[in-house]
Amino acid sequence: MTKSERADNRKLDEIRPMKMKVGVIKRADGSAEVEFGDTKVVAAVYGPRQIHPRHQERPDRSVLRCRYNMLPFSVSDRKRPGYDRRSTELGKVITESLQPALFLEEFPKTAIDIDMEITQADAGTRAAAINAASLALAHAGIPMRDLVTSVAAGRANKKLLLDMTKEEEDAPDAIDLPMAMMPRTGKVTLLQMDGIVSPEDIEKIVDLAEIGCMKIYEAQKKALHEKYRS
């Protein structure tokens, strides 16, 4: 499982070069920029703050609202700005992947807003977005049970792979399984998959994703410490 069999010379269980930087958007309460190879995302958090529209208010907790958005020039063919079904779905699943980690009950009647902007897309954008959002939440000082860490694993050309590129995702037998987890408890908070695959292989892919998550967790912790290095 260590031989280089991938176009970019990576090992099968190797993540693309990662870059993480905390505190990139000054106006926001918390922010982070994350890169996985050619995938780049910026996430920023505002809140807890007063909630608008007021009918979304919950008397017993804060409401987490996530926006996932691709910039028009982040993909080859310009993406038209505005509403689309994919972004709406991703906003929702990302919200659910982060929510278990938060002590939302500490801030009744408020909103916590996360804006995730994909500035350059080359597969694995939702995983990169979750990693950035998790860093931004921590940076904003929002109480959390754990960081949330995410990566996609899958299959391409009959091989099980971690953190696939767009090129690998385009293989005829490609399986893409994005996953997020809370590393301390090992609980999975996001799981999606498409393609035809045996349940046994799914287990293997999930194991692979877990290895990836643990590596990313270390990188996230390092990025948070880096911000406050004297």
């Binding site: 309460d29 918390g30 000082g141 049970r145």
Partner: peptide
């Protein structure tokens, strides 16, 4: 539960957050 500086004061451990509203 937050990003901050951990301190022990007698029998209590607390973390002073580096950020937050």
């Amino acid at each position: 539960k937050v990003l901050g500086i951990a301190k022990t004061d007698g029998r209590v451990i607390s973390v002073t957050p580096l950020n937050g509203v």
